[in-house]
Design a protein around this nucleic acid. Structure first.
Ligand SMILES: [Zn+2]
Ligand SMILES: [Zn+2]
Ligand SMILES: [Zn+2]
Ligand SMILES: [Zn+2]
Lengths: 151, 151
DNA sequence: TTGCTTAATGCAATTTGGTTGCAAATATAC
DNA sequence: GTATATTTGCAACCAAATTGCATTAAGCAA
């Protein structure tokens, strides 16, 4: 069998059942849109929403492409998604700082009610205690009020 | 001057400028829709989204009315809005518990990635430290993972 | 109770945000 | 350069949320 992409075969033999498993590795490609959008997010002081990225990139690419690029950048763990208190979603780059072993984004976001900016406060780590019948996988801690510029 | 609604006059006299300010007080009304929706949210174990409220109320009122009622209930500080990590907005009643003097919602929310339920963990209070050039007015701390039922 | 005034509602239309399918374009491995 | 799978653009689609306006009804005072 031949494929143009990377792949591996796994073989399992258990209880008289033989199984060949084909694992296809999708190769990630770098494109103009992807690099430009990542640049934009990385160099931005504040987190950006989809519409903001759309305005900033002009006619670089289609709005659908922006959605798909953002999705890929998240999968590659290059950016992260932030849900602001009012329900809008913004994106910021990851300055990991990951909780070493657990790979949990555990830092505070600040959302300014006046200029609507959202910022990662990478240095601040919140602490909490929660009943242990809950399994915590992600932490999303957003403070809102007035940012230094608007105070 | 005469008005059907409540109003007050304020008078300011400063630097040779005399100013009469008319403050009109909007009277809040209780309607069937409003009481029903508040009941629903208050008695619910978990936070409810707009669509969920729509399904639960049936043809009690128009969906637009639900949006407007929710907005009013938030203004009256009877319910609060919760943005889940994926950007959907849910509503829960306020069991204040308000930071006595400051009137800040300061409690943890848990969002289950399996059953999609969102719960207020009123008893848990997160602690954090933030640069003092920020003015914090709201705290929105959402943990996500698996809830006791789904674990 | 009745009438008056303004708040709240219903409905239709519109805007906004996000998704899907498919053909065409293009990045990467060889 | 060529082959092949990934990425893109476009159009269509869908759901969520907002707006304007005419109508209804809550609450106050007589
Ligand atoms: Zn600001
Ligand atoms: Zn962040
Ligand atoms: Zn659950
Ligand atoms: Zn809550």
């Amino acid at each position: 069998m031949q494929f143009g992409c990377k792949y591996t075969w796994y073989f399992i033999n258990r209880n008289n059942v033989a199984l060949y498993i084909l694992v296809i590795m999708k190769t990630i490609r770098n494109t103009a849109s992807k690099t430009a959008i990542l640049e934009l997010i990385t160099h931005s002081e504040v987190a950006l929403s989809h519409v903001e990225i759309q305005k900033l990139t002009g006619d670089l690419c289609d709005r659908v492409t922006i959605y798909r690029v953002l999705e890929r950048l998240i999968n590659e763990d290059l950016i992260h998604k932030i849900a602001t208190p009012d329900g809008t979603v913004k994106y910021a780059s990851c300055h990991h700082h990951h909780d070493n072993h657990h790979h949990i984004h555990n830092h505070v976001h600040f959302s300014c009610e006046k200029c609507l900016s959202v910022t990662c406060l990478d240095s601040v780590e919140p602490s909490y205690k929660i009943p242990d019948n809950y399994l915590v996988k992600e932490v999303n801690f957003t403070l809102s009020g007035l940012c230094p510029k608007c105070i």
